[in-house]
Amino acid sequence: MLLVAPAALYVLVFQIVPVVYGLILSFTEYTPLQRGAPTFVGLQNYAALVGDADFRGALWVTARYTLQVLPVTIAIALVLALLANRSFRGVGIFRSALYVPHIVSLTAVSMIWLWMYSQNGLINDILGTFNLSPQHWLNEPSSALNGVSVMRIWKALGSNMVLLLAGLQTIPKNLYEAASIDGAGRWHLFRHVTLPGLRPMLIYVIATDIIYLSQSFAEIFVLTSGGPLRSTTTVNYLIYTEAFEYSNMGSASAMAFVLFAFIAALTLIALRGGRER
């Protein structure tokens, strides 16, 4: 008990206490500017969320963002991992180059993409060379979330690829040899050896991606500030606004716990789906 005490104390003070405090706050009305204790309001903050169209909209945007980034990222990262798993000249550089976006801060990357998406940015310049008119990538409600998604896919590829590559390298080579001797072609090797062998890592990558993507904030803050017409307002962005612009810590905490439940549900679905297969 004594040996685990420091770690237990750390977990208690820095993880459990803030979470429990957040949960308590979600049942109160509280602004840090006020003098005195938060006012207990019971389930009022949660009840208000049920009828809050902005919150429902943000949940939908969060779900859409997560579900449109996730499969594309996983698919491309898997292809890249399969390529990087081969031995060819320069494979080290190939792997490193793909991992670089993961090292750079999301805020810095978002700034660079903001410039690329701007009226006179790189992407419109490329369109211009093909005599295509410039687009307002982040200014149109129909395209803004897709624009952010493309950036996020690019950003997430490196880490996903490295994890999947590690997963690929744990699959015993003799399984491939045995399957080949039995006449399995490339597709069958991938379908019946690679994918089953990769499943634990794939489930881990999907679960962590769901958790990260559902909490997206920095790229939204930098690229679109939740607009236009709230088409990119995620729940986390809404929580930031509620807590730090309007100083409503109680309702912001309630939103945070609903988001937690939402993420847990998505993750459980992914885990269960992975297990059933």
Partner: peptide, 12 residues
């Protein structure tokens, strides 16, 4: 520990 810290922070 949990209770006292929450109490302290909740009282403001």
């Amino acid at each position: 520990v949990l209770g006292s810290s929450l109490l302290v922070s909740a009282c403001g």
